[in-house]
Design a protein around this nucleic acid. Structure first.
Lengths: 291, 291
DNA sequence: GGTTATACATGCGATAACGCATGCATGAAG
DNA sequence: CTTCATGCATGCGTTATCGCATGTATAACC
């Protein structure tokens, strides 16, 4: 049992995680044949069967699970290293990956991105638009912009803006509500909410839940199409064409906009440069976010 | 900055540790040209200079030290894995590495080794004869036989025998001492000892330190050649031809013989088999070690 | 001043690793 | 029953990696 090649251990871990040669290969950016060969190599090196070859694919043995667990620890060390290298990197060139919710990228960030682009043309800026919370410890992104109450336990953060929310709907709805406040009002709710906001229910008892969505973009689209009223952040309602604020809800505090990064990465030159640009840009448009 | 190949990180670590391409290559069992190429690859992948190419070799930068430190952690994870795999391995074939002091291997272990060989012919038994304390955590050996007071903090151990020591010399010296106990007596001491053992100095005031050695094999050879008297373990004096016990020192307790292994590795089938054979064999010859 | 040893650069041929295409088995869907 | 999708095995040609041989620079030594 010689000391196995580290890349082969990594490959075992990928296969355990992703379940099939093809999926593991995709994750490693390798052809699945190569994955199969590396597994065979690792088994020879360790002198153990790591996977049972069944009709429906490779099934990991206990030994493979053990290898995968330890390779996972090795991977954590690697991520730690990569973060620290990024944090002490003083150059203003190369890749910088930021992540933010689609809606912020679409309606708030473009000016800041353009400024950054002009100031630091050598930085290869990559934007990952997703509502998923990417793992900044694993360096899925260097810097994140998030709508939340706190930056998170392990992350360093900076509050970019306070936010208010309000109720928005299409002009048709606005008109109807103004004419006949007692008429039935259709609401589009976010999945996690049980009912129409309490303040709206009290002031407008005819409120009724018509749809529940799991995605704010879709909700906004539905509101634009006139399907109903949506409670959304001020910036969003104001940015989207075809939506008006309706007086069903008084503006109320919403989760803030934070810029966060792993403390190891935070002091890196590229991250710092982006932070400064975004911070300055956001300062000039705080009014967009509050009532 | 992509995720670098793990084997390249390992190579950076080897170069930092060993100082030159050639030395790192030897440690990795690679040609030094390959080391140079991997370093270049790693630098490209990380986007950082890792080594300054000076007239007298590669000098690591801070970044390389950082990489090396984290690769060291990864290596620790790998060793941990290898130990656990060895510990849960139930097969009685493949490599088993044991380590022991040369003198025990030469004069005590042969019978046990032969028995083990006969019982488990498929096990590829490797013996590392050295007084150096090999790192059993790093799997430099699976099992060690040591002469010490305790098995060590992190290791599991089993006491194979208690030991006594006594004074031995060539027959010429034995005769001389018997004839004229007052005549000068030449001692050969182990480096770490300041003076002749107290009991000998009191009973034979004419004792004088003639040589200080750092190696027991050499001391035994010198005693055989008649250069003087040596305090050594009973088993050794009794085993070596051309040596006799001389009455300068009463037999006294010496460090015991231990069999030790890392707790992860201890339950492995091959280690267990060797333990059983050696334990049984040693039981039959405890008398060899005590007065 | 010439010899030897260490340390690295470079070019070339050999080798091992890889990607791709093809084929087979299985199970789900039409 | 046919079709399609998934998952893997195998063979072949390509590519990247590696080891070896050679050459240069520097320092140490007689």
């Amino acid at each position: 049992m010689k000391d196995a090649a580290w890349d082969d251990l990594k490959t075992v871990m990928a296969l355990v995680r992703h379940g099939s040669l093809a999926a593991a290969g995709a994750a490693l950016r390798l052809n699945y044949t190569t994955v199969a060969r590396r597994i065979a190599r690792a088994e020879a090196a360790l002198g153990t069967t790591l996977f049972e070859r069944l009709k429906d694919g490779y099934v990991p043995t206990d030994a493979a699970m053990l290898v995968a667990a330890h390779a996972g620890e090795m991977e954590a060390c690697e991520h730690d290293l990569m973060r620290r290298l990024a944090g002490r990197d003083g150059t203003l060139e190369g890749a910088l990956t930021i992540t933010a919710p689609q809606l912020l990228i679409a309606y708030v960030l473009p000016t800041a991105l353009a400024q950054f682009r002009a100031l630091y043309p050598k930085v290869d800026l990559r934007v990952r638009a997703t509502n998923d919370i990417l793992d900044l410890s694993r360096r899925e992104a260097d810097l994140g912009i998030r709508i939340s109450r706190t930056p998170g336990d392990t992350l360093t953060g900076l509050r970019l803006a306070e936010q208010h929310s309000a109720s928005f709907a299409s002009p048709g709805w606005a008109e109807r509500i103004a004419k006949d406040p007692g008429a039935p009002i259709d609401w589009i709710l976010y999945e996690t909410h049980d009912d129409v906001p309490k303040a709206a229910r009290e002031a407008y008892p005819s409120s009724r839940v018509q749809y529940r969505f799991d995605d704010m973009i879709a909700m906004a689209g539905a509101a634009q199409a006139g399907l109903g009223v949506v409670r959304m952040p001020m910036f969003l309602g104001r940015s989207l064409p075809g939506l008006m604020q309706v007086p069903l809800l008084p503006p109320q505090p919403y989760m803030d906009v934070w810029m966060v990064a792993h403390p190891d990465v935070w002091p890196g030159a590229k991250v710092r440069a982006f932070r400064d640009v975004l911070k300055a840009d956001m300062k000039t448009r705080r009014a967009l976010f509050v009532a």
